[in-house]
Simulated scan of single mutants.
Amino acid sequence: MRNEDMTTDRRGEAVDTPPRRSRGRWRRTAIVSAILLLLFGVPWWTLLLAGTAWPTPVVVAGTALFAVAFVALPAMMVVGRGRRRPDWLSATADALLGVAWVLFVWSVLGHVLRLALFLAGVDDPVRGRAVAVTVVAVVVVLLVWGYAEAMRVPRIKSVDIGIAGLGHGLDGLRVAMITDTHYGPIDRARWSAAVVERVNDLAADVVCHVGDIADGTVDQRLDQAGPLASVAASARVYVTGNHEYFSEAQGWLDYMESIGWDALHNRHIVVERGGDRLVVAGVDDATAKASGVHGHGANLEAALAGADGALPVLLLAHQPKQVAHAARAGVDLQISGHTHGGQIWPFNLLVRLEQPVVHGLSRHGDKTQLYTSRGTGFWGPPFRVFAPSEITLLTLRRT
């Protein structure tokens, strides 16, 4: 190894020095830069250069706009997620990211139209301009619609789930599920209150919040999270998602306990109705242990410790991939969020690379079922495209 990559410790022994970390930062910077070049470069070429023959002032102005966005996006995301977290800057960066993603996707798809026009004998610049105008029109429509979808109070999605061995008294038990509310830089306090009102209209026996409650600390997002105190149910339970570990996971657990929810930090409660009982357990998010937060880390064995093994089990676990542990433990039903259903198509295809399910009801092993919600709120870009939000009403049925 070269001398500049080595130094000595107090005992005179050779140890690695920061240049190795510096090389890692350069690699990450190169990867991010390549992604940004694709994200902005493909739309730039499609809209301005691909046979369009626009007047020079149009090309120059458009190029300048793309260049500003290329520089501004990473800068705003870094500053907007810094220690002081200026919300307006973070919200602007999130919106720009969403616009860039949708524009990139439909610029790529625009070349399918370009090929069709070529086969139909349409020449440039008519062909190039037709593609550019169509891409812009589709993107504008999708962004307007996607914003409305993201900001509206979610519709109710009702799902019946049969569980073997469910007691007669629990047949028809109603479980309302919200997840991924992501209270963040856009103030959605009124939205939060409307969500709670809609949940209360369901008259559920159990209400679950399955993580990613907010992006930020309790103090930062208290106005938006406050309406959760008004949720009405015999049992209200909550588990952490991965985003809690970006801010203060224990703070959110303590807050939910303070407003009367059961924070299922690797533990369980027992719900009883009509003389029959159901174990409702919860585990920390899959990222909790690696976060370094003391005492945190998904532990299903601890969550089920002391539970009657003859009782059916409903498990809250933020990420669908945690179902592998649930299936080995013989859990009857796991409910999860995290995926947002992809949130902005076709991101669902990328989500599927990491998670076993993107949304809906699925079976894992001989016994375990998993319901994955598309999420109640949104993260980052305030758009939902072909991935509607939901408040889920699960009705448990005896089979």
Score class of each variant (00 low, 15 high):
D284M: 02
T339H: 12
V196W: 02
W345N: 07
M77L: 09
L361G: 08
A327M: 09
I31P: 01
R10I: 14
A75I: 03
L278F: 04
A307H: 10
V206R: 08
M6G: 05
W345M: 06
E257P: 06
V207H: 10
V279Q: 07
I259H: 12
V218E: 15
I335M: 14
A67R: 09
R114I: 01
E13D: 06
V32C: 03
L314H: 09
A93T: 01
T63K: 01
G41M: 07
V141N: 03
I31V: 09
Q343E: 14
I31G: 02
I391R: 09
G251P: 05
W101C: 00
A203K: 10
V133K: 05
R152K: 00
R198V: 01
R127D: 04
V144M: 05
H340P: 13
R21M: 05
R397Y: 13
V139F: 12
R273S: 15
L394I: 15
A193H: 09
E390L: 00
R27G: 04
Y147P: 05
G216I: 15
R83W: 12
T63N: 02
R11Y: 02
L36H: 13
G297C: 11
G251W: 15
P381Q: 07
A317Q: 09
R10G: 04
L119N: 05
H182Q: 14
V313K: 12
S336T: 03
R27D: 07
R236E: 05
G146A: 10
L253T: 05
V105M: 00
S107C: 04
R188K: 01
W252N: 04
A137Y: 00
V271H: 15
S291I: 01
L316I: 12
H359A: 15
R328W: 06
A263N: 11
A130F: 02
L314R: 12
G360Q: 07
F66A: 00
R398S: 15
A176F: 06
A93K: 08
T46A: 06
D94R: 03
V99A: 11
D180P: 10
I344S: 05
M151F: 03
Q334C: 13
A303M: 13
F118G: 14
V102T: 13
P18G: 02
A64P: 09
G110K: 08
S192T: 14
P154L: 12
L37T: 05
L38E: 12
A137P: 05
A303W: 13
V280Y: 06
L89N: 06
G98W: 10
D160C: 00
G306C: 09
V108I: 15
E4P: 01
H340L: 11
R277M: 00
R384T: 08
R127T: 02
G360C: 05
G226S: 15
D223F: 07
R236W: 08
Y371D: 11
P57Y: 08
G251M: 13
G12L: 03
F347Y: 11
L350G: 11
L96H: 00
R267I: 08
Q322E: 12
V206Y: 11
A329S: 12
A317M: 03
L117V: 08
M151K: 00
W101A: 02
R155S: 14
S258D: 12
L96A: 06
A148F: 10
G172V: 00
L39M: 09
D87C: 01
L394P: 13
G12K: 03
V42H: 04
M76P: 00
V136L: 15
A120Y: 08
A194P: 02
M77Y: 09
D276Y: 13
L393Y: 07
